[in-house]
Structure formats: structure tokens, C-alpha cells
């Protein structure tokens, strides 16, 4: 099963190229160009990892992060930031982002972070599943 990624950045050429590079590396990639589109598509889909640019017009990466965390708390978010917005990225970490990377990011490092983020999501899902099973067993007195 391919890891499902959502790439979000208003720089279309950047996101299109990065998407191709990740597809070559066997990830299932979807791209959108605004924070609002990211929130909308996240509601309808179950992405494993969302890669979010911090500095976007109108809805910033941080605002989108807050919204997506409410809708899909298990989806892991990696922030992409320029030097000027590192403080925002740190704020994003406090708000629950998995990690942040400086732009332009090293692709192999990004792939490593995606894999780690996916593993964490999988771990959370397993724990929830386990807790649900234990709860069912408990209620039935097994």
C-alpha cells in the first residue's frame, strides 16, 4: 500500500516537480495550491502525511495546520519553511506538526521524514484499534 501524501504550496511549479519526484519514489501524491484547498481535500480524504508550506497567501500553513488537526488528528503534517518563517514553523511544531524542513529541502531527507511520519500515524492507529478491541472485550466480559 502506497503512503498517501498531500503536497500544499502556492508555488505551482515547485509542487508539481516535487510531486513527480515523490511519485517516482512510489508515494501516492495529491497536490493543491492553497491552505483552503488543503483543508477541503483533507476533509474528504485520508492522507497519511501532509506537506504544508508555511508562507502562503490568505490561509497560511499554520492556519491550515490548526484546521486539519481538528478534522484529521492522526494525519501527520510536515511544514516547509523559508528562513524568514522559521519561528512560525516552530510554533507549528508546538501546535502538533510532526516536523519542519527548510526550503529547498533535501529530497532524501524529506522522504525519510515522510516515512517516519507515516510510521507514527500507523502506530497511533494501531493503538486506537487495540484500545477499541480491549474495550469491546471488556464490555462483553471476556
Amino acid at each position: 500500500m502506497k503512503i498517501k501524501i498531500l503536497l500544499v504550496d502556492d508555488e505551482k511549479e515547485f509542487i508539481k516537480t516535487l510531486a513527480q519526484r515523490l511519485k517516482i519514489r512510489n508515494f501516492a501524491v495529491t497536490t493543491v495550491y492553497s491552505g483552503q484547498d488543503a483543508i477541503d481535500i483533507a476533509k474528504e480524504n485520508d492522507f497519511d502525511v501532509i506537506i504544508l508550506d508555511v508562507f502562503m497567501p490568505e490561509i497560511t500553513g499554520i492556519d491550515a495546520l490548526k484546521q486539519i488537526n481538528k478534522i484529521k488528528p492522526l494525519t501527520q503534517i510536515i511544514l516547509l519553511t523559508g528562513a524568514a518563517t522559521v519561528e512560525n514553523a516552530i510554533q507549528g511544531m508546538k501546535l502538533g506538526a510532526f516536523d519542519f524542513l527548510m526550503k529547498p529541502a533535501n529530497t532524501e531527507l524529506l522522504v525519510e521524514k515522510i516515512t517516519q511520519a507515516h510510521a507514527l500515524k500507523h502506530e497511533h492507529e494501531e493503538r486506537i484499534r487495540q484500545a477499541e478491541i480491549e474495550n469491546i472485550l471488556k464490555t462483553r466480559g471476556w
Partner: peptide, 22 residues
Amino acid sequence: LSHELQNVLAIIKETSGLMEDM
């Protein structure tokens, strides 16, 4: 402006990276 320049560099970097990948 330097932020925009960073985006330009990011695109150049990813595109040349994609060529390498190909």
C-alpha cells in the same frame, strides 16, 4: 524578495533533481 528567491531556487533545485531522477 529573498523569500521569493528561495522559492525560485527551490524550483530550480527540484527540477534539476527530477532530471537526475529520470
